[in-house]
Design a binder for these strands. Structure first.
Length: 440
RNA sequence: UCCUCAGUAGCUCAAUGGUAGAGCAUCCGGCUGUUAACCGGAGGGUUGCAGGUUCGAGUCCUGCCUGAGGAGCCA
């Protein structure tokens, strides 16, 4: 293999800057159209897809024949001259001078994912190949942009990255939704479902922190919004309140969507995403209370009663009432986690907030202010029948210099699904893990 | 865990209880500007599995398996 050879090696994405130059591009054959003595191989290299042109009259017979015999996804290194060409998709094409076949996929076992339609089961079984396709490539590039934007936001706003453990000794909110793991000869441990409790410790050490990693939920959920393994960013701030959470969440979402609009226009175009919906994501986001949300739902015909948590239908109804993410705060304490700080003026509700993405994508952010009073936290642990011994270290945080503090979690996959306009989160991660799917 | 739906060629799908088909993919042939190219031809089937009803089952019945969509729960 002689990938690095005389002509300058470039990528498909760089082709427009090399018009008139002889270059070489290593990649794979995405598709081959032919018309007699002229061939149109489509070259894919991970940065894009470029149409090449090979004419019989201008190539040695052996090279022309080798191209004619190419099969889908064969690995090739194409040498040729870049040309601006209005007839080519994307406006540029590569006039082939030479082509090296690195590996030709045999026709006895052709590449299974053809340019035609396929069912979701077939594609998910071949996820390791499916990610090569134009659409999946665009989605995963946007995911990268989202992840990078999240990190850039926190890194430039005084937050310290403090990763939290994936093996955890006990439940954070009850054991039924945790994956159990045998840990040597001793106790069981569980895969984390949230880094939040540890974030509260690191926030007392560093002030403003975030953790960013995979989390695991052993829920038998089988919907377009659920994975059993998903990625979440969770910031936590000392000396902070519910209002601080709302402000940071709003800034973060605006920043992330802005970055995607700035850097991933081409990918959004591949997905045929209506970007005007994303351009509308500007501050301030509408802020309503749980009480107002219940009234709004009832006015739209929902049977919801005060005190009930929102289901998928309610979230969809609420998010469709606004053109940008909506923040809903002060939920009934009974439907929220044990660590949520009660509203001092109305103890039956807590200082928590959820952010619902527009267009029916549901909850992308959940968080709020945490209980900082030792006695109250002890009482809540008892009410929720949680083993106090496992939470002694957590209670320590309220014994040694406790302060009001707050934070939230944002789900990466739901965010990406919303930004990309997808109908299922499974396409937003390279290898999704779901209730009945752990392969490949 | 519950509800609904589906499983037929490599893929996507047809087929009143009566000879299992089409498009794409693959192979052969044609075409110098194709855009999921197009045109002509060829090969390709244990109809998810196991029973049952019937002269006859892809089709009807029972059970099982696999998957999809949704509910609850959640990001």
């Amino acid at each position: 293999m002689t990938v690095a050879r005389a002509p300058r090696r470039i990528t498909v994405a760089e082709a427009a800057r090399h018009v008139g130059e002889l270059v070489c591009i290593p990649g794979w054959l995405y598709n081959l159209r032919e018309s007699g003595k002229i061939l149109f191989p489509l070259l894919r290299d991970g940065t894009g897809i470029l149409q090449c042109v090979a004419s019989k009259a201008q190539l040695p017979e052996s090279v022309f024949q080798a191209i004619k015999d190419l099969t889908q996804e064969s690995s090739i290194v194409v040498t040729g001259t870049v040309r601006a060409e209005p007839r080519a998709p994307g406006g540029y094409e590569l006039e082939v001078a030479d082509l090296e076949v690195v590996q030709r996929v045999p026709e006895s076992d052709p590449y299974p994912i053809t340019p035609k339609e396929h069912g979701i089961e077939f594609l998910l079984d071949r996820r390791h190949l499916w990610i090569r396709s134009r659409r999946q490539n665009a989605i995963l590039r946007i995911r990268h942009e989202v992840v990078k934007a999240i990190r850039d936001y926190f890194d430039s706003h005084g937050f310290t990255l403090c990763d939290t453990p994936i093996f955890t000794p006990a439940a954070c909110e009850g054991t039924t939704t945790l994956f159990e793991v045998n840990y040597f000869d001793h106790d069981k441990v569980y895969l984390t479902q949230s880094g939040q409790l540890y974030n509260e410790a690191t926030a007392m050490a560093f002030g403003k922190v975030y953790t960013f990693g995979p989390t695991f939920r052993a829920e038998r959920s089988k919907t377009r919004r659920h994975l059993t393994e998903f990625w979440m960013v969770e910031p936590e701030m000392a000396y902070a309140t519910l209002e601080d959470v709302k402000q940071v969440a709003e800034e973060l979402i605006v920043f992330v969507v802005g970055r995607v609009l700035e850097n991933r226009r081409a990918e959004l175009a591949v997905l045929e995403r209506d970007v005007s919906k994303l351009e509308a994501v500007q501050p301030p986001f509408p802020r309503i209370s749980y009480d107002e949300a219940v009234r709004l739902l009832q006015s739209k015909g929902s049977p919801i009663q005060w005190g009930e948590d929102f289901g998928g239908d309610e979230e969809t109804l609420l998010s469709e009432a606004f053109d940008r993410p909506v923040m809903i705060d002060r939920y009934p304490a009974a439907v929220k986690a044990f660590y949520m700080q009660p509203d001092p003026e109305r103890p039956e509700v807590v200082l928590g907030v959820d952010v619902l993405a527009p267009e029916g994508y549901g909850e992308i952010v959940g968080g709020g202010q945490r209980i900082h009073d030792y006695e109250l936290l002890v009482r809540r642990l008892e009410e929720h029948r949680l083993p106090r011994q496992a939470f002694e270290w957590y209670l320590d945080l309220r014994k040694y210099g406790t302060v009001p503090h707050a934070g939230f979690g944002m789900g990466v996959e739901r965010c990406v699904a919303w930004i990309c306009g997808l109908d299922h989160v499974r396409e937003t991660i390279p290898f999704p893990r779901m209730l009945y799917r752990t392969r490949p």
